[in-house]
Computed example of a mutant assay.
Amino acid sequence: MRRARRAVAGLLEEVATRADGHPAEEAYLYAALWARQAEEAARAGEDDRAGRCGWAAQRCAETSRALLAGRGAAAAYPSPFDALPPGPRRRVPRALREELERRLVRGRDLPPIGYAHRAQHDPALTAPDRFRPAANHPQQAKPAGGLWCAPLREGGSEWTRYADDGDELVVTAVRPSARARVYRIDTAQDLQVLAAAYPRGTPDGRPPGRELTGWASPRVDWAAASRHWAAVHLTERGQQATHACEGVNLFGWDVETVLFLRPAYRL
């Protein structure tokens, strides 16, 4: 608990001096929330939980300091909106690893892509050194953070063609790293393999795969997936197959998408 408190100490003043929306702000808030959970667990005598929450607070605080120093975040940091802090890394069974590798493509294999934004947005905010790692969202199949891109089309991108305000958006081209590991989702089975390899637990801490009220389907642990994959490519066919399929699905992913889980790209 003391380690968690020390990890957060001094960060508030540093973060407060930066402009609103600085990438370090979210990591600091997560660190503070984890530290609070660590204190509550310690008071309740839950030593194991307190230790895990304290570790998560330290991880988020380290990420916040790295972002403040302009070094960027190399990997996802734990979200306090997940019920339990992450435990030891889960080994993916060999049979699943082989299935995953069959869906592997490289960054050089992707179509030309870009991300859409308002004209007043500064693309430098999404440069690799300002990248916000993908983290699990408490209520959605779409992760928080990451860089969301779509294939370029004449006059814009797949997203600007879909969005109601597409005419008001500007598209900045994104160049994936040639050897970046990309997981391609072209069928519902491709998504099922990903969810089986990186299952996400439920909000009350039950094991992965258990459905509860408010969780319409099993979820992918995007933070865990980011340890092995730089990006996910949801093809047009994959979007149609997974948008509203039974079981694990990608409801809310409305167009063909390339989601960067790690900063394996250039602008």
Rank of each mutant, 00 (worst) to 15 (best):
A56S: 13
Q58L: 14
Q58C: 15
R59M: 05
R59T: 14
R59E: 15
R59Q: 13
C60Q: 05
A61Y: 13
E62M: 09
T63M: 06
S64Q: 10
A66Y: 02
L67Q: 13
A69R: 07
G70I: 02
R71S: 10
R71W: 09
G72T: 09
G72V: 00
A73R: 04
A73P: 11
A73W: 00
A75C: 12
A76F: 08
A76Q: 12
Y77A: 14
P78M: 01
P78G: 12
P80R: 00
F81N: 13
F81K: 10
D82E: 14
L84A: 14
P86E: 07
P86F: 00
P86C: 02
G87P: 15
G87S: 01
R89I: 13
R89M: 15
R89C: 07
R90F: 01
R91K: 13
V92F: 07
V92H: 11
P93V: 07
P93I: 06
P93H: 02
R94D: 15
R94W: 10
A95I: 09
A95E: 14
L96V: 05
R97L: 04
R97G: 05
E98D: 07
E99V: 01
E99Y: 01
L100I: 06
L100Q: 01
E101H: 14
L104M: 11
R106K: 12
G107C: 08
R108A: 09
P111C: 02
I113R: 03
R118M: 02
A119V: 14
A119Q: 09
H121F: 15
P123F: 04
P123I: 01
D129A: 00
P133V: 00
A134I: 08
A134F: 12
A134C: 12
A135L: 03
N136P: 07
P138I: 06
Q139K: 11
Q139Y: 06
A141P: 05
K142C: 11
A144S: 13
A144M: 10
A144C: 07
G145Y: 00
W148C: 10
C149W: 08
